[in-house]
């Protein structure tokens, strides 16, 4: 047993080092091999580690849908299987929304000032502003990205978001939400600053019977720079009458 376990570790190490070797040898590194040692300094480029069109809960189960939630979800899955997917905000080149934009297979770059944490996404040049010096206003005007406010709890950045336009979805397949969506994200560094995790709790009494949680992780990518992504230039999937059309 001991030998086989050691062999497995060795193999894993070899794979890990192989990847590091490639990164260090072939690619240009624009920034150090790990992010800042300051746990509250998230600045730099990160890339979603496991892209999934379908967002499961942390337990791997579907979210706890209400009857309506289940119905709308099924409607979207059926429409897609029939080759006529229903359009969400991103299909129109509108911002992807929160939390959907955090689940895109494109790099993002985090910038921090005392007043704002800014997440610039390569995908469709989405940009999230997380206000660090205020709470939510009493009246929130809905927007695609919603009103995000952040604060630190120890080394965890906690982001609370309300006021997300319901034309955005939660995942790419068909989990949708109402104007009552409330998300709380808990972002912290893991793996000695070579990754971050975002644990997202989703609450929306219209579509879910209780709050549920999913988790995304992002790798530190010192070898990447954001490139230009112009959705508007050639939107091959521009919807017609609410249906995404492939061209």
């Amino acid at each position: 047993m001991a030998v086989s376990r050691a062999a497995k570790i060795a193999a894993a190490l070899a794979v890990g080092l192989g990847i590091l070797g490639t990164a260090a040898g072939a690619a240009t590194l624009y920034r150090p091999e790990a992010s800042s040692k300051d746990p509250r300094d998230l600045s730099g480029v990160w890339f979603l580690l496991r892209y999934n069109r379908i967002i499961p809960t942390v337990d791997g189960t579907p979210p706890p849908f209400t009857e309506r939630g289940k119905l709308e979800w099924a409607k979207r899955i059926i429409a897609e299987s029939q080759g006529a997917p229903m359009a969400d905000a991103s299909s129109y080149c509108w911002p992807h929304g929160t939390p959907r934009v955090m689940n895109s297979p494109y790099p993002l770059q985090i910038f921090q000032t005392p007043a704002e944490t800014v997440i610039a996404h390569e995908v469709a040049h989405n940009t999230r502003y997380i206000h660090m010096q205020r709470g939510h206003p009493a009246q929130i005007k809905a927007s695609f990205m919603g009103d995000s406010v952040g604060h630190w709890e120890g080394d965890t950045l906690v982001i609370d978001t309300l006021g997300v336009d319901p034309r955005t979805w939660i995942d790419e397949q068909g989990i949708i939400h109402s104007e009552k969506l409330h998300t709380v994200e808990r972002i912290k560094k893991i793996q000695d600053g070579k990754a971050i995790e975002d644990v997202v709790t989703v609450e929306d009494p219209v579509f879910f019977t209780k709050p549920w949680t999913f988790r995304d992780t992002y790798a530190w990518r010192p070898d990447l720079r954001l490139t230009e992504y112009s959705c508007e230039e050639n939107n091959r999937n521009a919807p017609q009458g609410g249906t995404t059309v492939a061209r």
């Binding site: 001991a2 030998v3 050691a6 190490l13 080092l17 590091l20 070797g21 920034r31 150090p32 091999e33």
Partner: peptide, 28 residues
């Protein structure tokens, strides 16, 4: 633990020492 595995681990240890970044401070 058999010898090839130990040797491999030792080799990897050396490789890790070479490829690991020297203890870098945060960029200024």
């Amino acid at each position: 633990m058999n010898r090839p595995v130990l040797a491999l681990l030792a080799a990897l240890g050396v490789a890790a020492a070479i490829s690991a970044p020297s203890a870098k401070a945060d960029p200024p």
